[in-house]
Computed example of a mutant assay.
Amino acid sequence: MFTRNGRSGTFYFEAIEVTPKRTGNYTFNSYSAIDSYGYLYTNRFDPLNTTSNLLTHADDNENETNDQFTLVCTLQADTSYTLIFTTFDAGVTGLFSVVGVGPGRISLRRKNITTVPVTASNYSGALDSNSPTFSRDGTSGIWYYEAIQAIPKRTGNYTFKSYSAIDSYGYLFANPFDPLNITSNLLVSSDDDETGIGDQFSMSYPLEAGANYNLIFTTFDRSLTGRFFIVVSGPARVILRSMNTTLKQSSTTTSTTVATPG
């Protein structure tokens, strides 16, 4: 299992070693009753960093007329590649087949992938009447929020999940976060979990080691306060620090110019 880019939840996958006998363009088509998604990598595939070594990926066929993927790529003779068959939606299982077509025979063999243990990082906080506010959807009213600096120790895919008695909403931004323009630097946002049933957010995104990101915990409805807990899971620890004090100070800073007689 792994977390697919930009999608919350857990996805089952099968890794297939692909070795063409002749250099040229090859096409891989999936056939299944389930909505499929395909990735093709140069030799090594890292389930905790699905952008590393990625050659191409696809959701639908070349005409975008059905939910089976078509991958087209130029491959080198006697070179090993890794084809990943997975699903568009989280938690789906089922039978499938993959057909590869090209100028020469292709060796296709199931490949065992050793997954690295997932590391969890935790953060607890609370929204109250002293928390900073913004307009979440551009309408009237205020939403309290907490801004949390997130710095991953290793490049890879990370999942952010909230736990609270209040209906939560989450945003993840590349640094910096501007409460007056919440579309600027926005990477991903989430209202509910991967099932679409729970009222706690779950969002996943590939992060770069040592980079600064801004995680925003807020609420679905206006003017709500309460305690919350966030768990970040991924290939390494994530430093999580509150930025609310900094934001409060910057929002109350004023500049005064005093005119003096000339």
Rank of each mutant, 00 (worst) to 15 (best):
N5G: 07
F13N: 08
G262V: 14
F217D: 06
L55F: 04
T82G: 01
F28Y: 14
S97K: 12
Y41Q: 07
R7P: 00
L247A: 04
V232Y: 02
K248W: 07
G141Y: 04
F173K: 02
I142E: 14
S250V: 04
F173N: 07
A58G: 11
G198P: 08
Y81S: 07
L186M: 12
S184G: 02
S30F: 12
N43H: 10
S233C: 03
E208N: 07
V232A: 10
N5D: 12
T195V: 05
V116W: 08
R110L: 12
N63P: 00
Q68K: 08
I16T: 07
S124H: 02
S121Y: 02
L95N: 11
T257G: 01
F45G: 03
I151E: 06
T252I: 12
S107Y: 00
I142G: 08
S184W: 02
G24R: 01
T87W: 04
S30Q: 09
G24S: 09
T139L: 11
P20Y: 00
T225P: 09
T183I: 02
G24P: 05
A211L: 06
S190N: 13
N25H: 02
T3Q: 08
S255T: 13
L75Q: 05
T115V: 07
G125M: 03
R109Y: 09
R105D: 15
T86M: 05
L240T: 10
